[in-house]
């Protein structure tokens, strides 16, 4: 079966628990994190996660909605793009 992977992007003011909360939400949805990159750019926390959502039992829109809710609660912007889109845009 073809694996379905996404990039999750988290942007916002640095604070305690961002990685913990995001990864817990993904764990609870059976999403496997395969790669994490994180840095603070000009005072802004930025993190990208490459995640396998193949085993996530829920619709992708529901997962997106949960991430949106977490983002609102923590004052973060959380986006999710299909890996295929990022690859198409940045790799020939």
């Amino acid at each position: 079966m073809e694996r379905q992977r996404v990039f999750i992007v988290v942007i916002g003011q640095d604070r305690k628990g961002i990685i913990a909360r995001v990864s817990t939400l993904l764990y609870e949805n059976e999403v496997n994190i395969e790669d994490v990159q994180q840095k603070v750019m000009d005072g802004t926390f930025v993190m990208t996660l490459l995640a396998d959502v193949t085993d996530c039992g829920r619709d992708i829109s529901e997962l997106r909605s949960e991430l949106d809710d977490l983002g609102s609660e923590m004052g973060l912007t959380i986006m999710m793009h299909a890996e295929a889109v990022i690859k198409a845009m940045h790799r020939v």
């Binding site: 990039f7 992007v9 942007i11 790669d35 990159q37 994180q38 840095k39 930025v46 993190m47 990208t48 490459l50 912007t77 986006m79 793009h81 890996e83 889109v85 990022i86 690859k87 845009m89 940045h90 790799r91």
Partner: peptide
């Protein structure tokens, strides 16, 4: 070649801003 943070962020930024 793996995708870098800046590249993913560039796509997000295009949509966000």
């Amino acid at each position: 070649m793996s995708i870098g943070l800046e590249e993913v962020l560039e796509t997000s930024g295009m949509i966000l801003f």
